[in-house]
Simulated scan of single mutants.
Amino acid sequence: MGFREASKFSRIAFGLAVGGFLTDIIGFPTPYWISGVGFSQGLFQTCTILGCIKNPSELLLGWGKAVIAMEILGFLACLGCVVLMVLYVHVKNDQKILQTAATGLAFAAAGFILIGVIIYGSELSGASFGWSFGMTIVSGLFHIGVGVLNVMDKLSPQ
């Protein structure tokens, strides 16, 4: 039992899960979801040339709170997916329940992350989106790949 005994699909899915986790942990908390000249804004803070200030939660609109909730839920599902993929690929290749749970969490993470991105993008459709916004989208797409590869692994003949 170990990484070498895991299937090719599982090893690739593991790499995508780690990549999705890294892009999500870099993308969603950083203040570059919207960027302009001397100005950038994220979910939690707004920055100018003079410095950064925290976005007060009591002033957030309902859609802003929904985006934050979706992104945090997506991050937690992403974290759970990575933990289960580590256990499945490196420790317990024979425990298919770990792979099944990781698949469910991967699709949940992708869903939450991309729903948050869609809400944010639709509310601020005329804005100039920054690299944080793009990295968060990439994270959601990575997690779709993790889920699809795990399903393919489960359906492939051993």
Rank of each mutant, 00 (worst) to 15 (best):
T23P: 00
A6N: 06
A66D: 12
D94Q: 12
G62Y: 08
P31V: 09
M1W: 05
V117P: 00
Q158N: 07
Y32A: 10
N93V: 10
I115M: 11
S132Q: 02
I144C: 06
L50D: 14
K92V: 01
A17L: 09
P157V: 04
F39T: 09
G80Q: 05
M152W: 13
G130S: 04
D24E: 14
M152E: 04
I72F: 10
V83I: 15
G20C: 12
V148P: 02
K92M: 12
T136P: 01
D94K: 12
K8L: 11
L43Q: 09
G104P: 03
T30M: 14
H90M: 11
S7E: 03
S156G: 01
L43T: 05
L43R: 03
Q45F: 06
T136V: 04
G147F: 15
N150D: 11
V148N: 05
Y120S: 02
C47T: 07
G15N: 01
L43P: 00
G64P: 02
W33Y: 14
G62S: 14
I118L: 14
G147D: 04
I68E: 07
V146F: 12
T23L: 15
F44Y: 15
G38M: 09
Y120P: 00
K92S: 13
F129L: 00
K65G: 09
S10H: 11
G64H: 05
W63D: 04
A102V: 11
S125P: 01
G80K: 02
Y88W: 14
F112Q: 00
A106R: 02
L59M: 12
S128F: 10
T48N: 08
Q95P: 01
M135S: 12
Q41L: 09
I144Y: 06
E71K: 00
C81L: 08
F3L: 11
S132V: 10
G140A: 08
S132H: 06
A108P: 00
F75L: 11
I68M: 05
Q45S: 15
F142Y: 12
W131R: 01
C52L: 08
L79S: 09
I34K: 07
M135W: 12
G38P: 01
F112N: 02
C78H: 05
F3A: 07
L84V: 07
I12L: 13
Q158H: 08
G36M: 07
S125V: 03
P29D: 04
T30L: 14
G62A: 11
G104N: 05
L22G: 00
W63G: 01
I137Q: 07
A106I: 09
L149N: 04
T30W: 10
V151S: 06
A110Y: 00
V89Q: 06
L79E: 01
I118F: 14
G80M: 07
V91I: 13
G74A: 02
K154H: 10
S128D: 07
T103N: 09
F44T: 09
G15D: 04
T100R: 11
G36C: 11
L84I: 09
F107V: 09
I97D: 14
G36A: 15
K92E: 12
S40T: 14
I26C: 03
E5S: 13
V91W: 10
S35E: 15
T100K: 13
V18A: 15
G42Y: 05
G140P: 00
G147Q: 04
A6F: 07
F133I: 03
G104R: 06
S10T: 08
G64F: 00
V82E: 02
V146H: 06
S40K: 08
